[in-house]
């Protein structure tokens, strides 16, 4: 059985994908989970392929997750950490693209501080480009693993009520989740301080709650975003304590929920700020499952993209699902 849901050359975000393509990635991730449980955690799928992890922003967990995914598919990986002066940031991107092209790298996983950077790179090189987070724009593999985790625990995505809590304005995780979940038929809401909410967000097809209590009353799932310290320093919220008091996901609040909630967090957590420890370590938290699923989802994405071509993605988006 083959379903042509080809992704094309790159995974830049979830906004351009169809529900069928997203479903194919999630379904493909299932068998890849099993590989991580074997004694020999390797399959020869990407043997001989070179993958560069090009990280312009510091990141431990995402990079390691990708690295494991790549190595478990037998690819050769190279890590380039281009975290440095922002002055060089702009020039470096174009020149980096050209250098990678000249070295004939098969795939590039890029994380960059500017929205649009992944698309910028993808348009300039022939290698497959996977967006590991560009500015505030998208972080597709994170949203995919979030959706996989929700699907694992609740059996479906359609009709599931997911509320994303926190700094939506600056969050690429939020945006990718909004695109992915709405396409898969989930009901999506956002909740956070107004200063951290993007304008016109409801026009993306989501509800907006101003109070965390309303969100908890409504949701089946909470995806809790990290509040970065810089936001407080930039004045968006007066203090972390105030944020926790009015928007923190605490055990007391969850106890008042009408139904058991699934708790997700992309990590790393600010314990005591957006989420309390007893919630993060509690029975409804699936945060560790997210980490496991992260590797499987990334393996699935690498598998599906390798050797892909953009024309097939276009055809796949409009073709009816074959059985």
């Amino acid at each position: 059985m083959q379903v042509d849901t080809a992704l094309g050359k790159d995974l830049v975000g979830l906004e351009p994908l169809s529900a069928a393509q997203i479903r194919a990635i999630l379904d493909t991730a299932e068998p890849f989970k099993e590989i991580s449980e074997r004694a020999i955690k390797k399959v020869p799928v990407l043997r001989g392929k070179t993958i560069v992890n090009l990280f312009f922003e510091p990141s431990t967990r995402t990079r390691i997750s990708f690295e494991f995914a790549e190595k478990r598919l037998s690819a050769d990986t190279v890590n380039i950490s281009a975290v440095g002066s922002s002055v060089a940031k702009g020039e470096t991107l174009v020149d980096t693209a050209r250098n990678l092209e000249a070295m004939k790298i098969d795939m590039v996983v890029i994380r960059h501080g500017s929205s649009g950077a992944a698309r910028f790179l993808a348009d300039r090189i022939e290698s497959n480009v996977i967006n590991a987070g560009d500015g505030r724009h998208e972080h597709p593999t994170q949203a995919l693993l979030d959706m996989l985790t929700i699907r694992d625990h609740l059996g479906r995505l359609e009709g599931v009520r997911v509320c994303i809590v926190g700094d939506i304005l600056h969050s690429r995780v939020a945006r990718s989740n909004i695109w992915g979940l709405t396409k898969m038929g989930a009901e999506v809401a956002v909740c956070g301080p107004r200063t951290l909410m993007p304008p016109y967000v409801t026009e993306l097809g989501v509800q907006q709650f101003s109070r965390i209590e309303e969100a908890i009353e409504w949701a089946d799932v909470l995806n809790v975003l990290r509040l970065q310290l810089e936001r407080m320093q930039a004045g968006y919220v007066p203090s972390l304590r105030e944020y926790n008091r009015f928007f923190g996901v605490t055990r007391a609040r969850l106890l008042r929920a009408p139904r058991p909630l699934l708790i997700l967090h992309p990590g790393p957590m600010n314990r005591g700020v957006e989420i309390d420890s007893d919630v993060a370590d509690g029975p409804h938290s699936v945060i560790l499952d997210q980490v496991t699923n992260g590797i499987a989802v990334r393996m699935a994405v690498l598998y599906l993209l390798a050797g892909g071509a953009p024309e097939r993605a276009e055809a796949a988006k409009s073709a009816p699902e074959a059985v």
Binding site: M1, Q2, V3, D4, T5, A6, A24, D27, T28, E30, P31, F32, E34, I35, V43, P44, V45, Y303, L304, A306, G307, R312, A316
Partner: peptide, 18 residues
């Protein structure tokens, strides 16, 4: 995932359960 023609064939085949 162990096929010797994996990269040569067209759309990625669906991977079943092991």
């Amino acid at each position: 995932l162990y096929r010797d023609d994996l990269m040569a064939i067209g759309p990625r085949p669906v991977v079943g359960e092991t």
